[in-house]
Amino acid sequence: MSSDTDIDLKALALEMRGNIIKMNCHAGSGHPGGALSSVEMLTYLFFKEMNFGPNNALDNDRDRFILSKGHGCMSLYAALAKKGFFDEEEFKHLRHIDSMLQGHPDRVKTPGVEFNSGSLGQGFSFSLGCALAGKRRGSDGRIYALLGDGELNEGQVWEGLMFGAHYKLDNIVALVDYNKLQSDDLNSNITALEPLMDKFSAFGWHAIEIDGHNFDEIAAALAEARTVQGKPTIILAHTVKGKGISYMEGVPKWHGSLAPQGEERSQALRECGLEGLD
């Protein structure tokens, strides 16, 4: 639930972006574009919306966040470290041997990670299993799954959409990071995704369309989802890939797997309010 404490979400989002760039540079590779596009959604979920932190991470009635678009894991790692699941020192070891931070999420190695995502489509179905189990136990824990737009190419996602509607899973919210770019190219040059809102509605989900970088719209959509009964909610969040780093915004190559070098690195750090890699 939303906390009453006054949190500066914009400052938190900037800090998350800075940590994403730092760990990306330490790793020398990774997927910055899709991590940056999801920052506001993760910031709001982890620091306003969800009842989830190190103190209740083993409570079966906790809220759960599943990063189905596992390649965007740098934003998840930034959020988990800020929540206190592990020290920010770990950022230096991302993607290196013997690290707790893997190239894609690993629940066994990394505290706070719910699922080993990275293979697209699976995290969403996993989330549906968490939601169904919650319904069966009468749990009030809520399930949040973040999907990529390219991920919607996977047939498994549409199997899951049918499943969620069939079982009336109103305790799950799926969010789509609709940054319009996937690995090879623009979504629209890859396959026929649209009309997404019509498709989600036709599949029996309560569909909401928002600006995924606007905290007020994120807050309103999540609040609306809590009022929906008898059907699951999906939020189509329009975003900008690479958001916050000017030269990455909307540029396909920053999907991954790479990290900024030289002057680009300095500029990225500056745009996040940082002077350098520590």
Binding site: F126, L128, G129, C130, R137, Q156, G160
Partner: peptide, 11 residues
């Protein structure tokens, strides 16, 4: 994949 989600809750 859904089964993995169920298993994560102890079922």
């Amino acid at each position: 994949s859904m089964a993995a989600g169920l298993a994560s809750t102890g079922v």
